[in-house]
Design a protein around this nucleic acid. Structure first.
Lengths: 332, 332
DNA sequence: CTGAAAGCGCTAACAA
DNA sequence: TTGTTAGCGCTTTCAG
């Protein structure tokens, strides 16, 4: 911040005066939609440069009824699934002339509602929301005056969404384990308030049953308390007499691996592990973790691209589901 | 998006009409700064509720010359140091009635400049920037019409900053290794275009020299190409005949650990490792990684708090430096 | 305590 | 091609 910090930034009238034309001419020259005489153009450009004029997007927004602004609400950006999506979304928005507000709901649907209100007061043109686990309300969403897309977490099948194919994920994990002959698979589920974890679990089990497993052979453990940990799950994993674990995320897989190794259980000799998200760290571990990768950056990009189409009233894919793949490591 | 999506959202005049008062009275009632007759107040509140009125922050901003909006520019939010800072910053901003734009510079100073321009066009009241590694330009920053704080990465000592104490970090690592009697420490540096890595390295070396190490015993390796990897560093680490490595980040530490284990080198028996950032994964590894923790969320919060003070022209701490601590694991 | 009127910076008819 | 004018939604004098 320099001495001229208080000096009001130049407006379109300043430019107009400097160039000896009217404000509308400046407006036209800058928008480049309506032809302007080359020589005036030059004078205007000179004036703009001289004054270092920055058009006020606020004023333009007020006039045009659109702020060219979008909102992205996530529970917690330090959860590694969100940064990738945020990056993809922001990049796409930027490339189309939009900027994005980031806000955190802290997994609290009341705060989330307030954030939506705040964003609406800022006249965002659309919203991307990874909604809080509890308290989703379809009616509230339906009443929003701008397009909204459910990002990563889908709570309603009708409303627009952009998610990873959880059926496919459950299937990938299950058939990988089945193919390698593991007998007593365990799936550790995430917060069951999130449909995505229910779907993943159901599909995992369904695939195993189809492959001929008896339901007695399959164990479901609730790992929602141990998203960033896994260590707390170790006892139940051991107790389940499993030979293959599908964790709900990589950190959990890591913790379980550590716990099992500490208990002198061999990986994958005694117990195999599949992680989820395929963070960069997976292949840096010893043993490297087999993990399923979600193309989150791409998902964020697609979601944003669809949102922008909706905003423009163009036909758009509103039900986006991307495919994942399994990255084999040394734990299966 | 519902059927009423096109229905223009209600304005202050709608509320005024509904309540049978003038717009100025509504404005006063809502701002709560100027007294309004209780009965009018009630009618206005009713009208607001009935119409579900949302004041336009755009219009207010235009009128008041401030958008109550801030900008946060980071190279890449998927680098795990940034989400924590972003979270802290956004939370603090929100609690003071501000919202924040997030943008990515992709470590490109030209793009960064453009983003700054875009944010200024949106009339942000201030900026938090983790600037691109190359191309920092003091003059450009000085000319900005709003307060800016260097976040995490400090390129200029005079300009406001909020960073982690790199001298202390180098010292923590060095004295930890010295105290445990390691003889041939290696420091793997990050991108030397970033002053923070230079400072960390210098302080590490300085501390070792003071502790009586000869400079021959200390090795500096450039790890800037291997931030998310470390594996590529393994050969040089082995070649250095070191017995203790201070990595530039945890992922790198992880990769080096994996490489050393693969080469049948014991950790910490043959080689000790200290990581950096103390990601949650550190204590889930086997062996758990000794790592230095930066209080990044807190830093983000402090930075934002200071920025907001600057915006209000209040005296503020503009040179913020937070302390870190070493989290002992099993690799030293 | 309340209303009328001006204006923040910009764009878009409508004229010229 | 250019200027004049009105108005986006809001706050804020200035009068009552």
């Amino acid at each position: 911040m320099s001495d001229d910090q208080k000096k009001r930034s130049p407006t379109i009238s300043d430019v107009a005066r400097e160039a000896g034309v009217s404000t509308s001419t400046v407006s036209r020259a800058l928008s480049r939609k309506i032809p302007v005489h080359p020589s005036t153009m030059t004078r205007i450009e000179a004036a703009v440069a001289k004054l270092n004029y920055q058009p006020s997007v606020l004023a333009r927004g007020l006039k045009e009824g659109s702020s060219r602004t979008l909102g992205l609400i996530v529970p917690d950006i330090t959860n590694p699934v969100f940064p990738a999506a945020a990056l993809g979304a922001e990049s796409e928005a930027l490339s189309q002339g939009y900027q994005v507000f980031l806000a955190h709901s802290h997994e609290d649907s009341v705060l989330e509602s307030q954030l939506i209100q705040l964003m609406l007061q800022r006249k965002v043109d659309g919203l991307l929301i990874a909604s809080a686990a509890e308290g989703f309300c379809r009616e509230k969403w339906l009443q929003l005056p701008v397009p909204v897309i459910q990002l990563i977490r889908k709570f309603d099948d009708q409303l627009p969404y952009a998610i990873c194919d959880q059926d496919q994920i459950g299937q990938l994990a299950a058939s990988h384990l089945a193919m390698r002959g593991y007998q007593r698979p365990v799936i550790i589920t995430g917060n069951q308030a999130l449909p995505l974890y229910r779907q993943r679990k159901d599909s995992f089990i369904r695939t195993l049953l189809r492959a001929g497993y008896s339901s007695d052979a399959i164990t479901v453990l609730d790992g929602s308390q141990w998203r960033n940990e896994g260590l707390g799950m170790v006892q139940s994993v051991i107790a389940s007499k499993t030979d293959a674990v599908f964790a709900s995320c990589d950190m959990q897989a890591l913790g379980i691996a550590r716990g099992l190794l500490a208990a002198n259980i061999k990986i994958p000799g005694d117990v195999a592990i599949i992680g989820m998200d395929n963070l960069a760290l997976c292949h840096l571990m010893t043993p490297a973790i087999t993990s399923i990768r979600q193309p989150l950056k791409d998902l964020g990009k697609k979601a944003m691209s669809s949102l922008l189409s909706m905003i423009r009233d163009q036909s758009a894919e509103t039900h986006i589901k991307v495919s994942c793949w399994l990255n084999p490591g040394e734990t299966t």
